[in-house]
Simulated assay, not measured.
Amino acid sequence: MLADTLIAQENIHIVKNAPLIFVVSNVKKRSGYERNGCLSSVKGESWEMFDAGVACQTLCLAATELGLGTVIMGTFDEDGIAKFIGLPENEEMIALVACGYANEAPKAPRRKEVAEILRFL
């Protein structure tokens, strides 16, 4: 069972109760790389994480539009899940996204003011 490969207790509960789990992965050395394998960004390998983050956000926004709830999880046994789902060796797992109809509408945490996190030049 996929939940058996998780580490954080709260994630185990989420996965056991979610009807759908997305495994977000990327093809190694593809995003931010030229066809010849050279890096095309000064961000190096971290550009792959940027693209994966955008994909997770878009997935969650699309699910919300359909009335579904999502939880992005980054704490898991990568090797265990890769084996469980048969992830190709040329792919790297980035996150799990649980998706389904929420039992409750959780209260949003307090957010920082925009002025605390954004700077206009």
Rank of each mutant, 00 (worst) to 15 (best):
C60W: 06
G44M: 08
V71Y: 05
G80P: 03
Y33A: 03
P88E: 08
S41Y: 07
I14M: 08
N26H: 13
L59N: 02
G86Q: 03
K43F: 14
N11C: 12
D79N: 08
F22K: 06
T70E: 07
K83R: 15
E65T: 09
P88A: 09
A63S: 07
I21P: 01
C38L: 15
N26C: 13
E113H: 09
A52L: 10
A105I: 13
N11P: 04
R35P: 08
E113W: 03
L118I: 12
V23G: 00
A55L: 06
K107I: 11
G74H: 03
G67V: 04
F76H: 03
T75C: 13
P109L: 06
F50D: 06
F76I: 00
V27G: 01
G80F: 00
V97R: 03
V54R: 08
V23K: 02
C38T: 15
K107M: 09
F22Q: 04
I12A: 00
G86E: 01
V42C: 09
C56A: 08
N26I: 12
L118V: 13
I94A: 04
A108T: 11
N103R: 14
F76C: 04
A82M: 10
E78D: 10
E104L: 08
D4H: 09
E78H: 13
N36S: 11
E113S: 07
R119A: 05
L121M: 10
D77G: 12
I94L: 11
N26Y: 15
K83E: 14
G86K: 07
L96R: 00
T64H: 14
A108G: 00
P106V: 09
E65W: 11
T5H: 12
N26G: 15
V23W: 04
K112D: 06
H13S: 12
T58H: 12
D51A: 12
A62S: 07
A18Q: 01
A102Q: 14
D51R: 07
V24N: 03
I117V: 15
I12V: 15
E10D: 13
I117Y: 02
E116W: 05
E104R: 14
L20C: 12
